[in-house]
Design a protein around this nucleic acid. Structure first.
Lengths: 213, 213
DNA sequence: AGCATTTTTATAACATGTGTCAATTTTCTT
DNA sequence: AAGAAAATTGACACATGTTATAAAAATGCT
């Protein structure tokens, strides 16, 4: 990395750190570009040069925290794909739980911005991940053979992102959001699962419903 | 209505009409409060006096168009409750379809605004409507007796609003959004329906999936 | 070292939603 | 008709995201 790129990366890091500091100590409302520039000790223009927009700064904060819905992609290999998928919701919940106010503020701000690319890339990425997982599940015999895995994957991903959108707007708690997703995922999967995986999903569905009371 | 109230109502109507005119002819981006005041031939302050905020003007436009998710509440009485519920999605779709660009712009703008009350009242209203309908369905024997209708109603309403939120952000077409909702509604209902209503819902689910191709 | 290129800075500006405040117009009450 | 109350207006102000412009600084290249 050239010295120029190094300096830019250093400044980017400084700006991210400043943004996080402001959000944590003063709250999201206080994160203005002028305040951010001051805290990061750069000029007002620099965040625009290095990120593009305020929304891009926030997206960068999310990425730094390694939140890319990547939990959808990984899991304990001893479990079935469907178990891993349902388990990924726990990981997403834990991620948000680890720092609820912070992430909710950022997420809400990104989603409310008029930069639709942000939402669009999130949708595409998670749809892609979900489709891959479902194809694997189908190959594993966890789904009925004629399942349209692309459709189902898309459906599941959309359920997730749609509910997360509402989570961001503050209407639901972490747990309640994830429970909603779990309920809809189970219901959808139950339409396409093979008999071997049905008991597991049924149990998860029941658990989701009961955890609401 | 006193003359004072009459005048206010007249001005409100004028402002709504001006807003609609601007949105239709110049697009949502051009709808600024200054432009609106000019078009309505009132002062910049008046829309604030009469509506409260820009978001409130937009909400008023939606209400004027009689979009309050009220389709959830009504339906052909010759049909079962579940048929009516599924049919209400057609009406919502038709409503948006009737003037897609116009309503999408307004909806997106309302949802993206930092007036969370807007989203909150929408959620509460539709949750309430859905719960009422499901209670009726349960009484009708369309659902299994031990169904938690409040939970299921809330779930359905959230599915609808969450997907509509994504619709507003432009990612889906009208049809695709409603199809997503239909798919998740059917899947959820199939977990709780009685045997008499099952064939109908199964058919609706199949239709939803196939209409995606 | 010296010149060219890229970045950052400083300062100002712009558009927008929203608020203030006094003056003015309209409506209500009597 | 006259005074009181309410609504509208106009001019201005403020905070914010964003952009423009030119000067200054840092870096790359020879």
């Amino acid at each position: 990395m050239s010295r120029r790129e190094e300096a830019k990366e250093f400044n980017r890091a400084r700006i991210r750190a400043a943004a996080e500091e402001i959000i944590r100590t003063e709250g999201m409302e206080k994160l203005t570009m002028r305040r951010l520039a001051e805290q990061a000790d750069v000029s007002l223009r620099t965040p625009y040069n290095l990120f593009g927009s305020k929304t891009d700064v926030l997206i960068s904060l999310m990425e730094e925290a390694e939140f890319e819905l990547s939990p959808l992609g990984a899991g304990d290999e001893n479990l079935t794909i469907i178990e891993q998928l349902l388990g990924s919701l726990d990981r997403i919940e834990a991620f948000f739980e680890s720092d609820e106010e912070y992430f909710r503020g950022i997420y809400a701000s990104i989603m409310a911005s008029d930069h639709p690319e942000a939402r669009e890339t999130a949708v595409l990425r998670s749809v892609g991940l979900a489709c891959v997982r479902l194809r694997q599940a189908a190959e594993n015999g966890e789904l009925v053979p004629d399942t349209d895995t692309d459709n189902l994957g898309k459906h599941l991903a959309i359920q997730l992102l749609a509910v997360l959108g509402m989570w961001g707007s503050g209407f639901f708690s972490n747990r309640e959001s994830i429970t909603q997703v779990r309920q809809s995922w189970c219901a959808a999967l139950l339409q396409h699962c093979s008999e071997t995986s049905r008991p597991l999903i049924t149990a998860a569905y029941r658990a989701a419903i009961e955890s609401k009371g």
